[in-house]
Each structure stands twice: as C-alpha cells, then as structure tokens.
C-alpha cells in the first residue's frame, strides 16, 4: 500500500472500530470492507488489525471488530476468505476463546460471537478446511458447547 492509502486504510479501520462509537458505524464498516477488497495488501493487513482489536479486553471494541470481520467475510472476495482461513489468523481467535490464553478474561459475548462466526464459516466456506479443522479442535477441547 502506498503511504497515502495506508493512512486512509487505517483511518477507515479505526473509525469503524472506535470504542467511542455509540452504535455500529455501518458506513465505516462498509467503507473498510470495500477498501480492503481493492488493495492487494488489504486482506493480510486487515486480518492483523482485526486480530489485535478482537483481543481487546474492551467488549465493545472487540464486538465492533468482530462485526467488521463478519461483514467483510460476507462482502469481500476469496483473497480475504483465504487470509482469514489461515491458522495465522485463526490462532488469534482461538487464543481469545481458550482458557489457556485470553479466554478467562474475555467477556462471554465476545467468545460466543467468535464461535458463532467460525461455525457459520464452516458451513458457508467448506473449502476453507483450516477453519473446519480449528473448529473441530475447539469442539474436541470442550470449548465449543454443542
């Protein structure tokens, strides 16, 4: 990304996930999804930004980031799906739900939203085998309650 695009990309992201937002900023969320889809480096950069925010101890900030993730998975293309479908990103989600890592201090709402998203992706994106593998591991470890 050229520096100018970088700044715009980051500004859009932080606007869409700002903890000071009263409600979900759908304009900001949609603008971010559009931008990340256009830029070659968009998907990997977006997943790094999202992973960091999703691990925030602030519930509202994490929920906004998960909403951005959910929207982008619906509206963005295969390049973003493939990036989210890598263990490099899935491991960051797993850390949030796992008691061995961040799970014990993460709000229940955030943990159930992550598991709900992962489950929906196992149905909607069956070719992303790593998502299924990660979800099955969480089930085996009893982190996913049927």
């Amino acid at each position: 990304l050229s520096p100018a695009l970088d700044v715009l990309f980051l500004e859009t992201f932080y606007k869409a996930t700002n903890p000071l937002n009263k409600d979900l900023d759908w304009d900001g969320i949609n603008a971010f999804c559009e931008q990340l889809n256009k830029e070659l480096e968009g998907p990997p950069l977006a997943t790094r930004l999202l992973a960091h925010k999703i691990q925030s101890p602030q519930e509202w900030e994490a929920i906004q980031a998960l909403t951005v993730l959910e929207s982008c998975m619906k509206s963005c293309g295969k390049r973003f799906h493939d990036e989210v479908g890598k263990f490099r990103f899935l491991n960051e989600l797993i850390k949030v739900v796992s008691p061995k890592y961040l799970g014990s201090r993460t709000p229940e709402k955030v943990k159930s939203k992550i598991l709900e998203l992962m489950y929906s992706w196992t149905l909607g994106l069956p070719h992303e085998v790593k998502i299924l593998e990660a979800y099955q591991m969480l089930k085996k470890q009893g982190i996913v309650k049927c």
Binding site: K86, F87, N91, E133, A134
Partner: peptide, 15 residues
C-alpha cells in the same frame, strides 16, 4: 480433514 502444510502459514494452535 487434514490440511496440507502451507509454508506461508503457521500450525494450528493446540489448546
């Protein structure tokens, strides 16, 4: 399902 080893990725975190 066993995923192929993808060099551009990490291994699954075991918890």
């Amino acid at each position: 399902t066993v995923s192929f080893h993808d060099d551009s990725d990490e291994d699954l975190l075991n918890v």
